[in-house]
Amino acid sequence: MKKVIVAAFLFTLGQGIHAQKGFKPLFDGKTTVGWHSYGKTSAGAGWKVEKGVLHFDPEAAKNGQGGDLVTNAEYENFHLKLDWKVAPNANSGIIFYVNENPEKYKNTYDTGLEMQVLDNEGHHDGKIEKHRSGDLYDLIKSKSEPVKAVGEWNTAEIISKKGKLTLILNAVIVVETTLWDDNFKKLIAGSKFATWPGFGTFKKGKIALQDHGNEVWYRNIMIKKE
Rank of each mutant, 00 (worst) to 15 (best):
M1A: 15
K2R: 14
K3P: 03
V4L: 12
V6S: 12
A8F: 13
F9G: 15
F11Q: 11
L13N: 10
L13I: 11
Q15F: 14
I17A: 02
H18M: 15
H18T: 13
Q20N: 13
K21C: 01
G22R: 11
G22P: 11
F23A: 01
F23G: 01
K24W: 10
K24P: 10
P25S: 15
P25E: 11
P25L: 10
L26F: 09
L26W: 05
D28C: 11
G29C: 10
T32Y: 01
T32K: 02
G39W: 02
G39L: 06
K40G: 02
S42K: 07
A43L: 01
A43G: 02
G44C: 06
G44K: 00
A45V: 04
K48E: 08
V49Q: 07
L54A: 01
L54I: 04
L54S: 02
H55G: 03
D57I: 09
P58T: 04
A60W: 07
A61T: 09
K62D: 14
N63Q: 15
G64E: 07
Q65R: 13
G67R: 08
G67P: 10
L69K: 06
T71G: 08
T71Y: 04
A73M: 10
E74H: 10
H79Y: 14
L82P: 00
L82M: 13
W84L: 03
K85I: 09
V86F: 04
A87G: 09
P88V: 12
N89T: 14
N89S: 13
S92Q: 09
S92F: 08
I95T: 14
F96R: 10
F96W: 14
Y97R: 15
V98D: 05
V98A: 09
E100C: 12
N101M: 14
N101V: 15
N101Y: 14
P102E: 12
E103I: 07
K106A: 12
Y109I: 05
G112D: 04
L113Y: 07
E114A: 06
L118H: 01
E121N: 12
E121T: 09
D125H: 02
K127W: 13
H131E: 05
L136K: 02
D138F: 01
D138Y: 00
L139C: 04
K143W: 06
S144W: 05
E145A: 12
P146F: 05
V147N: 00
A149L: 07
G151M: 11
E152M: 08
E152C: 05
N154T: 05
T155W: 02
T155L: 01
A156S: 07
E157W: 03
I158K: 02
I159A: 08
S160I: 10
L165D: 03
L169E: 02
T177M: 06
T177P: 02
T178Y: 12
L179A: 11
D181K: 13
D182C: 11
F184C: 04
K186H: 11
K186C: 09
G190I: 05
F193A: 09
F193S: 08
F199H: 08
K203A: 12
K204V: 15
K204D: 13
I207E: 03
L209K: 08
D211Y: 09
N214D: 13
V216F: 03
N220I: 09
M222Y: 09
K224S: 07
